[in-house]
Amino acid sequence: MWSSSFASSFIVTSISASSDVIPRAIKRLFHQASIGDQSYRFMFKRGPADEAVAIDCETTGLSVRADDIITIAAIKIRGNRILTSERFEAAVRPDAGMQAEAIKVHRLRQIDVAQGPLIWKALPSFLHFVGGRPLVGYYVDFDIAMLDKYILPYIGIELPNPRIEVSKLYYERKYGDAPPNTEIDLSFAAILRDLNIPLLAQHDAFNDALMTAMMYLALRDMKERGVRIPRLRTHTVFNPTGA
């Protein structure tokens, strides 16, 4: 996860409205009817009602078209528990070269993943792990778009799983009732700080997925209890001179 640098360049447009709900639903029906590998039809069956999976991918860069995944992590959430013992982790060998900026972010060099399997080898285990459960993430659309780049040619469908965006949940709890022109900070660091979640070593796929899972449970609980995250009050001083 590219955290704040990613958030500034890949803002999810569904923060205030899910404009792509209908196209995604239609695409799901199309893929369900045209799935190439019938053994993966289980992906369209919703998992246990109280389960979700937090996911995170580290990549060689921020371009879905040009960059590749290098690590994937997924952790199951059951009820109010994060099941760190039920997790999926894989480091894979990318086709794209490592960009210097990416190496600075996740501290993985080309040589560090050169012996890993190609992502095609990791996909079956990942897909069986997540099943049809909702996928929880921080700017999860990017992670899913990166995964779909490989999954679509592999089994003929994109991930049909429901998506839960933690930055959207955070926005609702903190800024849903904010007046116009309120300064909005949806960075990973801001969410951790407001929810009193400990900062683990970032840009490690497992740690980022774990922190995301903690965010999700905290924000879900706040929503169920009708609790909002307080904002700092800003005072506007009226100056008749306009200065």
Rank of each mutant, 00 (worst) to 15 (best):
K149H: 10
I157T: 13
E172Q: 13
Q202I: 05
L200Y: 13
Y150L: 06
P198F: 06
Y139G: 08
I164M: 01
N196Y: 08
F188D: 00
R173T: 08
I164K: 03
L135P: 03
H128M: 02
L200F: 14
T182P: 05
A205K: 09
M215T: 03
T212E: 09
Y170A: 04
L169R: 10
P160F: 05
A213L: 09
I184N: 10
A209S: 14
E224F: 01
P179G: 00
I157E: 01
G226R: 05
P124M: 03
L199C: 06
R133K: 14
L159C: 14
G156P: 12
S125A: 15
M222N: 00
P153S: 11
G137M: 06
F126V: 08
G226H: 10
D208P: 07
A218K: 15
K223C: 00
Y154D: 11
L159W: 02
H203S: 13
L147S: 11
R133Q: 09
L217H: 10
D143K: 14
P180C: 07
I197S: 10
E172V: 11
N196L: 06
I157R: 02
F142V: 15
D143S: 11
P124Y: 05
R173E: 02
I144Y: 07
L147D: 08
H128R: 15
V166S: 01
D141C: 04
M215H: 03
Y171R: 03
M146Q: 14
A218V: 03
S167D: 00
K121W: 00
R163Q: 14
M211F: 08
A201L: 13
V130Y: 07
A190F: 00
I144S: 12
E165M: 02
A122K: 08
Y154W: 14
L219N: 05
M211N: 14
Y171N: 07
E165I: 01
M146R: 12
E183A: 12
L210N: 13
D221I: 00
A178G: 03
K121C: 01
N161M: 09
I191W: 03
V166T: 12
G156F: 10
R225Y: 01
E158I: 11
D194A: 00
E172H: 04
N196C: 11
G176A: 01
A209V: 11
F129L: 10
F206Q: 11
A205N: 05
D148E: 12
K223S: 10
R133Y: 04
G176E: 05
K168M: 05
H128K: 15
F126E: 04
D208I: 10
I155S: 11
F126G: 07
N161H: 07
A209C: 11
L192E: 12
R163A: 01
P124T: 04
F188G: 04
D177F: 00
L127G: 08
E158T: 15
D148T: 10
F126D: 04
M146L: 14
V140Q: 05
D208S: 07
A189R: 12
E224G: 01
P179V: 06
N196T: 07
F206M: 15
L217C: 06
G132Y: 13
H203M: 13
M211Y: 09
M215P: 05
A190N: 13
L123T: 10
G226T: 06
L199K: 15
F126S: 04
G176W: 03
L199F: 03
L219M: 12
V166Q: 01
